[in-house]
């Protein structure tokens, strides 16, 4: 199953990927901490193989958001809580919504800033059904919960299909 981790520049997507898969990425598609192509890893979730991708966050590479969204079965939108909701976040949120896949919003760097989850929900204009979870990819807080909630949403949807 393909899951894509979206987010603006420096939101912590690659670190999130490493934390979620419990693997250090040997080769990153990056330059000075900025992902310039894509990062990819595999993980096992209760016997199901999950293919986890990250997108570049810089608007220069925005064409890759659509490319990587192709065929995804779920998404994670990472918000940098030290920055707040940006236009890029709203744009990516709109893209994910348009794909009609289950997704979770992870309010990352929660160890550094305390961004109100209600403000995140309001800033992105998302329904109460979308889980918004504080995370710290660096410390590991909330990362497993994000994956767990996303898989739950996916299974709920599968049950209603």
């Amino acid at each position: 199953m393909k899951i894509v981790v979206f987010g603006a520049l420096n939101a912590g997507k690659t670190t999130f990927l490493e934390r979620a898969s419990k693997k250090k990425l040997s080769v990153k598609g990056s330059y000075e901490g900025m992902t310039t192509s894509l990062d990819f890893t595999r993980l096992d979730y209760n016997g199901e193989t999950v293919y986890l991708f990250t997108t570049p966050g810089h608007r220069r590479f925005d064409f890759m958001w659509e490319v990587l969204a192709n065929g995804m079965r779920g998404a994670i939108l990472l918000i940098d809580s030290t920055v707040g909701i940006t236009e890029v976040d709203r744009e990516i949120g709109g893209l994910i919504e348009s794909k009609g896949v289950p997704y979770v919003v992870a309010v990352n760097k929660s160890d550094l800033a305390n961004l109100s989850l209600d403000m995140v929900r309001e800033g992105l204009g998302i329904s109460a059904k979308v889980p918004v979870i504080p995370t710290s990819a660096i410390c590991g807080n909330g990362v497993d919960e994000v994956l767990h909630r996303l898989m739950e949403l996916k299974n709920e949807r599968r049950g209603t299909e």
Binding site: V27, G29, T36, S37, L38, F61, F63, M64
Partner: peptide, 19 residues
């Protein structure tokens, strides 16, 4: 600008594939 960004993405991805 678009050509440069796309070239970099393709080369980065090709690097990943080789790896």
């Amino acid at each position: 600008k678009r050509f440069a960004a796309m070239a970099l993405v393709v080369l980065g991805t090709a690097n990943r594939v080789c790896d």
